[in-house]
Design a protein around this nucleic acid. Structure first.
Length: 322
DNA sequence: CATCAGGGCCCTG
DNA sequence: CAGGGCCCTGAT
C-alpha cells in the first residue's frame, strides 16, 4: 500500500541526545520493518490498531536536539491519536530520560567513562510493542542470525503488510490475534520449526487480551518478570531483553546467555571467549554499575557493535556466525 | 557426504 | 535442578 505524508511534528528530546545511536542499534539483526542511514530512521509502527509509516530525521545536535517526525498514515488521523502517538514515541525511545545522573555516577569508571564520552546522548529503547518484541524474541531462539532474519521476513511476507512511503518499501507487523485462523502446520511450512507452537500460543494470548502491555508498564519489575515468564515460549533470556528494551528496567540483569558471556568475558576480563568466565562472576562484576547495571552494559555493548561497523574485530566475527 | 551447534525454552525424571 | 529434544541451516 502506498502512503502519503500528512503531517510533520517537531520533537525535542532531553539533551544530550545522540540521534543515530538511539535510532540505530547495530547489534540488532536487520529486519524489514525499518531502515536507517545517518540522520534518518524509517520505521513502520502500529498504534491503536492503525499501521503507519514513520520517518525520523535528525534536525539538531547532541546539545540542541531536535527530531522531525513525519507520519504516513493509511487514512485520516485525529489530533488525540497524534498526541498519544507522540507520547508513545517519546516513551519507546526514552526521549525524556535524564542521563545526567547515570553519567555523573560513572564519570570516573575506567571502562565506562570513555564509552560515555563517545556516546553522549545514546538512549536505550526499542520501537516494538510487547507482542512484536516477543515475536522477535521467538525467532532469535536457538538460531543463527541469518536464520532469524529469514524467519521474521517470511512472517512479514505472509501476515504483515507492505507499506510504500518516502521511496521505501517496509513491512508492518500484523495485529495480535491475526494468526488465529492460521494452523500450526502452516507456520511450520514457513520453516520456523518448533517456534510455530510458541507463536500460536503467543498470538492467542495477546489476541484475547490476556496481557495488557500498558497495565504491565506500571507494575514493579518483579511482577513484570513474573508475567513475562508465564508466557509460553518465554524464558530468562527473552524476559531479560524485554525488561530492559520494553519496560526500561535499566538496572535489571539476572541472566547472561552463553554467547553474551563469551563476549563479556573478552570485554571485561580479556579472557579467551571460548573459555568464558562464569555467569556469577560477571554478575558480581556488574554490581559496580548499580542502579544502572543493564544500561551500563548496553553502552559498552553498543560501543563494541559500532566499532565493528568500522573495523574488523576477528574474535567477535568468530562468535557471530552471520 | 555427515555431523553439529546455534543470539532458548519446555518437559521430564 | 540437570539434561535431552526440538526445527532448520550452514559451517566444518
Amino acid at each position: 500500500m502506498k502512503l502519503k505524508k500528512i503531517k510533520s511534528i517537531k520533537l525535542i528530546p532531553k539533551a544530550p541526545f545522540n540521534f543515530d545511536a538511539t535510532f540505530h542499534k547495530p547489534d540488532h539483526f536487520p529486519s524489514g520493518d525499518n531502515d536507517w542511514q545517518a540522520g534518518f530512521r524509517w520505521q513502520t509502527w502500529r498504534w491503536e490498531g492503525k499501521l503507519l509509516g514513520l520517518k525520523f530525521e535528525n534536525k539538531g545536535s547532541v546539545k540542541r536536539p531536535q527530531i522531525k517526525t513525519t507520519i504516513y498514515p493509511q487514512n485520516s488521523l485525529s489530533n488525540s491519536f497524534i498526541n498519544s502517538l507522540i507520547n508513545e514515541i517519546s516513551y519507546k525511545y526514552n526521549l525524556d530520560l535524564d542521563l545526567a545522573k547515570f553519567y555523573a555516577l560513572f564519570k570516573k569508571d575506567e571502562v565506562l567513562a570513555p564509552v560515555i564520552k563517545r556516546w553522549q546522548g545514546l538512549r536505550p529503547g526499542h520501537q516494538g510493542s510487547l507482542y512484536e518484541y516477543l515475536v522477535v524474541g521467538l525467532v532469535l531462539q536457538n538460531a543463527t542470525v541469518k536464520r532469524s532474519v529469514n524467519m521474521l521476513q517470511v512472517l512479514f511476507e505472509n501476515y504483515g503488510q507492505c507499506l510504500e512511503y518516502d521511496e521505501k518499501k517496509l513491512w508492518g507487523f500484523w495485529r495480535p490475534g491475526d494468526l488465529a485462523g492460521v494452523k500450526e502446520e502452516e507456520l511450520r511450512g514457513l520453516k520456523i520449526g518448533y517456534r510455530a507452537k510458541y507463536l500460536k500460543r503467543l498470538d492467542d494470548c495477546f489476541g484475547k487480551g490476556k496481557i495488557d502491555e500498558f497495565d504491565l508498564r506500571r507494575r514493579d519489575v518483579e511482577k513484570q518478570k513474573e508475567e513475562l515468564l508465564k508466557i509460553y515460549g518465554v524464558g530468562p533470556a527473552t524476559a531479560g531483553y524485554i525488561l530492559f528494551d520494553i519496560f526500561h528496567r535499566f538496572n535489571f540483569i539476572e541472566h547472561i546467555s552463553p554467547w553474551e558471556r563469551k563476549i563479556y568475558s573478552k570485554l571485561f576480563f580479556d579472557q579467551d571467549p571460548e573459555k568464558p568466565v562464569s555467569e556469577d562472576k560477571l554478575l558480581k562484576y556488574f554490581d559496580r554499575y548499580r542502579p544502572y547495571q543493564q544500561l551500563a552494559v548496553h553502552y559498552i555493548w553498543e560501543d563494541l557493535w559500532w566499532q565493528r561497523k568500522n573495523k574488523h574485530i576477528p574474535w567477535l566475527e568468530k562468535l557471530i556466525r552471520a
